[in-house]
Design a binder for these strands. Structure first.
Lengths: 65, 65
DNA sequence: TACAAATGTCAAGCTAGCTTTACTTTTATT
DNA sequence: AATAAAAGTAAAGCTAGCTTGACATTTGTA
């Protein structure tokens, strides 16, 4: 899974800390997601989509398997 | 999170076992999801959406929190 | 009504997603 | 160049999502 989290965060002028707070997760989680270290839970994906006014599919890109 | 998995499964004439195989998970996982015992991983949500030709948002309904 | 297929329950174990804490490196501004 | 803010790294611990296996119940149909 790829994602455009960092791009969206910067486009919206947020720091990692600010984004973490808005999504109610730790800054570590933001870092890990931006770096593709692991995938978000579906709850976090929903919260992220809602925050940026996009669909999950627009933010998190599933690579076929 | 609510979901319409069971409805989709029956509408498409699948048993839990068949759906499990198509989604490459165990039958237990299908049961647990249908019963709302836990949420799917985002990967499983993507696979499910792809299988039924719907979006994640159409199958899994996030209840605000 | 017997039998098989489908569904459900229980429990123990593994790993991915997330947390916290503490420290280092990079980037920007003065 | 000094400082502070932002971003990155590392590691240990917790829990949700998933697995396997064994057994019980429900449903459908011969």
């Amino acid at each position: 899974m790829k994602n455009i989290l960092e791009e969206l965060r910067i486009k919206n002028g947020f720091t990692q800390q600010e984004l973490a707070e808005k999504l109610e997760v730790s800054r570590q989680t933001i870092i890990s997601l931006e770096q593709g270290r692991y995938n978000p839970s579906i709850i976090l994906a929903f919260k992220t989509a809602r925050l940026f006014g996009l669909t999950i599919e627009e933010i998190f890109i599933y690579e076929e398997g």
